[in-house]
């Protein structure tokens, strides 16, 4: 199949970028989206042009490193799928595909399609953990956790930290990401001890980064590769209010 690509090229953080046109003839519909970019890059390299920089690593939908806006949609047209798991069979022969970075104020573009998502790491560092040192843990089965609770904690913990939620949100809010960690921990007995501190610190850190506020459009859940539910945001708000009340 043939494709017409319009790809965001930006030399570095401080340079203005623009969309550049590329044409690919003869790509195989079974190729993954990133393999299509590999093919383009091979051509660019051999004509001594700079290849398109894009983020990726595991290429199996779990590391959260990949992610671009494809025709205006985070990770492209398939629901709940990372960019690396998307295949060209989802596109039409001759189609024009616009490829842009996960743009958001809190995610500055580093080069071409790569953005800086370090703000996520800072949110986790501010409280997204259980304060247990190596060696302190009690016997694993000493605290039973019922099946449903464990499964529900897993649903929140499944977040891969790709940033699609932020990129897709019109406000650039990190509420889904932050809340997923807060609920993962709040649901488990191990996380309950630090419940109040955690939510206050993490929300505080989130507010200090350049993220916008959540206005409940629920667009994030739609694009999330792991189907993280917006109910996590409700739980975060509950935890936050609860912590505020208890603090007084």
């Amino acid at each position: 199949m043939k494709l017409h690509l319009k790809i965001w090229r930006q030399k570095d953080k401080n340079t203005q970028g623009k969309l550049v046109d590329y044409w690919l003839e003869d790509v195989n519909p079974h190729m993954s989206f990133l393999e299509m970019l590999d093919t383009l890059n091979e051509k660019l390299v051999l004509s001594d042009e700079m290849p398109v920089e894009f983020d990726h690593d595991c290429r199996e939908g779990i590391c959260g490193q990949c992610g671009v806006m494809i025709n205006g949609l985070a990770h492209g047209p398939l629901k709940n799928t990372t960019t690396c798991q998307l295949h060209l069979r989802e596109f039409k022969d001759g189609e024009t595909i616009v490829i842009e970075p996960f743009r958001s104020k809190a995610f500055p573009v580093k080069k071409d399609l790569k953005v800086d998502r370090a703000a996520f790491d800072r949110i986790i560092a501010s409280g997204g953990f259980v304060s247990v040192n190596t060696g302190q843990a009690p016997e694993a089965n000493s605290i039973p956790i019922n099946h449903e609770t464990a499964e529900s904690a897993f649903d929140s913990a499944a977040c891969i930290g790709c940033g699609a939620c932020v990129a897709t949100c019109k406000n650039g809010s990190a509420a889904l990401f932050t809340s997923a960690k807060i609920s993962h921990m709040a649901k488990l007995p191990q996380g309950k001890e630090e419940r109040e501190h955690r939510v206050l610190n993490m929300v505080h850190q989130m507010d200090n980064e350049d993220f916008g506020h959540c206005s409940n459009t629920e667009a994030c859940e739609v694009e999330c590769p792991q189907s993280i539910s917006v109910l996590n945001i409700a739980q975060m708000n509950y935890e936050y209010n609860r912590a505020k009340v208890l603090k007084k």
Binding site: F129, A140, I143, P144, A150, A157
Partner: peptide
């Protein structure tokens, strides 16, 4: 033996039986 204890304490949501045990 210790690793499972450590991971559970960190909040790793391992699969559990209906009685709540791992």
């Amino acid at each position: 033996l210790n690793l499972i204890d450590q991971a559970v304490a960190q909040g790793v949501p391992f699969g559990r039986e209906y009685g709540g045990y791992l």
